[in-house]
Nucleic acid binder design. Sequence first.
RNA 1: GGAGUUGGCCAGGCAGUCGCCCCGCUUGCGGGGAGGAAAGUCCGGGCUCCACAGGGCAGGGUGCCAGGUAACACCUGGGGGACGCGAGUCCAUGGAAAGUGCCACAGAAAAUAUACCGCCCGCCAGCGUAUUCGUAGGUAACAGGCGUGGCAGGGUAAACCCCAUCCGGAGCAAGACCAAAUAGGGGAACGAUCAUGCGGCCCGCAUGGUUCCCGGGUAGGUCGCUCGAGGUGCACGGUGACGUGCAUCCCAGACGAAUGGCUGUCCACGACAGAACCCGGCUUACCGGCCGACUCCCUUU
Length: 118
Amino acid sequence: MTRFPRQARLTEPAEFKRVFDGCRCKASDRWFTALAIPNDREYPRLGLVVSRKAARRAVARNRIKRQVRESFRNTQARLGGLDIVVIGRFGIDQQDNMALAQALENIWTRLIKKCAGS
RNA sequence: GGAGUUGGCCAGGCAGUCGCCCCGCUUGCGGGGAGGAAAGUCCGGGCUCCACAGGGCAGGGUGCCAGGUAACACCUGGGGGACGCGAGUCCAUGGAAAGUGCCACAGAAAAUAUACCGCCCGCCAGCGUAUUCGUAGGUAACAGGCGUGGCAGGGUAAACCCCAUCCGGAGCAAGACCAAAUAGGGGAACGAUCAUGCGGCCCGCAUGGUUCCCGGGUAGGUCGCUCGAGGUGCACGGUGACGUGCAUCCCAGACGAAUGGCUGUCCACGACAGAACCCGGCUUACCGGCCGACUCCCUUU
């Protein structure tokens, strides 16, 4: 299943707050920080935070978000019932799509491992 | 052919595949899905709410003339000035005889009135040179004083100002509607007339229960939200901006926020950059490409 419907997104401030406050496991590198918390569902949900600070131009922010969504879409089957917030960090707009995809793959793997342990 | 001026247009294409956001019939299909600047938020409107008898002052914008427009600081035409052989380009381009202020350059001096300069006359003091010294004379140069003469009543209003003219405030987080949970408010009905308080007691008054209704209103939701000063074509009017008529088309509407990923292929190897209520402008950013008009020079016929 590689769809990405609205149910698979965090859409309300309260949901974001839940992840930030109750964050159990965390994975980060130079360009991303990912926070996660188990939800009561059978599928994962994704929320994105890419600030103006991380990428000045709107075009760059859009590109980064699309990359994350695309990567999430292809990976979600392995993630299980997690609410995840991915945060873009400063300098991320300098990276090309290939680099972002690899970085994300790495992030997902580590996140799964950490959450399974907790 | 070369050099140049100017107006307009495009903004990688195609195929496959996996997705996202709207809409339509609703297995699943079909249709639509960022820009010329969507940007800066600098002007002008529409729209919404609030305020508002009328007039004036203050404050702010605009500034040759005429026209276009819903309106403008925009656009068109004309006048004037500057640049260019020219096509053209650029100009906040009203008023200095209402007043106040300022004045780089030039000038003696930009308003107090004369320092200044040139020439002339005389005087005082000092220095250098020549002579043995004092004294006297001559030459060059400096400073000061006196008399006479020269020069002006200019510029500046992206200085105040004057004149003309325009201007209410806030903004879609505008605003409208629906509306949980919880805690208040108002009302009605029901209690073997039960409990508590004020009373020694009764009456009475207050508080308490359950059910229902009403009103305000938070989270949340819906609307506003895209058919519009709309696009395209033709005709007519006008030097032109533009207007009028007819025909035709429906062309993003998201809201933790869609418009993308991958693969193949072609070429001039792809810049600046992402809608958030909607229009008209201005300004800024930008790889390249295409089309039209015009000017000058050279060559050929």
